[in-house]
Nucleic acid binder design. Structure first.
Lengths: 216, 216
DNA sequence: AGTTTATGTTGACACTGTTAACTTAACATC
DNA sequence: GATGTTAAGTTAACAGTGTCAACATAAACT
């Protein structure tokens, strides 16, 4: 294994190769299956070579999730073009749930694991974290709907509304990921649960709680 | 350390002593801080002595959570005496959230960690698991309310309603536990979030969506 | 007294993440 | 061209972890 000085591009290629190798293990069997040593093994590296490219396992996995979540955020960008604020919110929620269900390990690590303290001043070069990104787009949609006077009069704080909508969908995703195989509970169909959550929350939050927003 | 044959009572005392020692570490610094070796150290046991009383770490911690959750379930029993089904549901939700926030590590392990497959036939002697217990009491309350014709006409499945209510509150608890220190998000007051979630879901699910159920 | 048995302890195995010290090949400079 | 510098990678090691197998011991039973 001859060491040659690598150009910046080559170095980046190795980084993404490591990320891909780690992802294979990660998406399939979770964080603790994605061993640093196993990743190195698959790269034909020695166990410690990974540390030349990533500070530690934490940052490796975290960076992996970050990039994947950012691609999601960009995919969901198309939804922002939809005119009707309510329909926009509904579709955003659907996309969110869909991602959580198809990438449970990513979701678990981003939203269901103890967070890094995320000190403000640290390495300075990570201004856009995906969770903020996702929440920000939800929030902006809520602000739009609020500006259009669509919410009930008492609801004066868009932030509170956004956090409630998020919590509702997160609850469904989290329970599905964690307990879908729990035989003690007769789980209803996932899409039914999502539809009812969205329908009920909308009906509970919106001003004209009548015919337009229908609970299926 | 002289080994004497222990009576069943003594054996049970040792078990609970181990559980208590483990709980100290667990509630304070989480699962991975509750090391088998550290528990043994605090008991003045050798590292492997714990395994004479518990099959492995998994079952130790799981049993710890189970008992604590069951005591919660019994505390919440008082709520069942409340006459108004809606108020009953509301208080149950409040108690649930309160427990989750004051025992975040318990909650995390019970509802936010990959579940054991919980094969039906195993050791046979664990019929009442607390998550089923909690869900069962929620479900029975929903059934009552449903029998009293309080829900909207379209909502014919109490199970679906119960799971939606659970998911809503679980979402709040889970986000609070995982991300309360995330500075990227301007979290609203927790009790406000709970109140809005309960109010909105109730308004969205109940039949008379008018003056009685007020969103604060 | 001698045997059995529950209750422990010691030592070990196979892992993990991670750091320190060493090796090697490619480049820049005198 | 010989020399040094340095990035890239290796091996060895440390301090942990959960857990099992083999051994020890003291009480109880026959």
């Amino acid at each position: 294994m001859p060491p040659k000085p690598k150009t910046a591009l080559q170095r980046q290629q190795i980084r993404t190769a490591i990320l891909n190798a780690a992802r294979d293990l990660f998406v399939e069997r979770g964080v603790e299956a994605a061993t640093m040593r196993e990743v190195a093994r698959r790269m034909n590296f020695s166990a410690t070579a990974i540390y030349l490219h990533f500070k530690d396992k934490e940052t490796l996995i975290r960076e992996l999730c970050t990039t994947d979540f950012l691609t999601l955020a960009h995919e969901l960008r198309a939804i922002e073009t939809i005119a009707d604020p309510i329909e926009r919110l509904r579709l955003l929620g659907m996309g969110y749930v869909q991602f959580a269900i198809t990438h449970p390990n990513h979701y678990r690590l981003m939203f269901m694991s103890p967070q890094i303290v995320h000190d403000t001043d640290s390495s300075s070069t990570e201004p856009d974290n995906p969770e903020q990104d996702a929440y920000a787009s939800l929030y902006s949609m809520v602000v739009d709907a609020h500006a259009a006077n669509l919410f009930r009069a008492e609801l004066i704080n868009p932030e509170l509304i956004a956090q409630t909508l998020w919590a509702g969908l997160h609850g469904i995703c989290a329970l599905e990921i964690t307990m879908k195989n729990d035989k003690c509970i007769a789980w209803c169909d996932l899409t039914e649960r999502v539809a009812l959550m969205q329908g009920a929350l909308m009906r509970g939050l919106l001003r004209n709680h009548g015919t337009t927003t229908q609970i299926r």
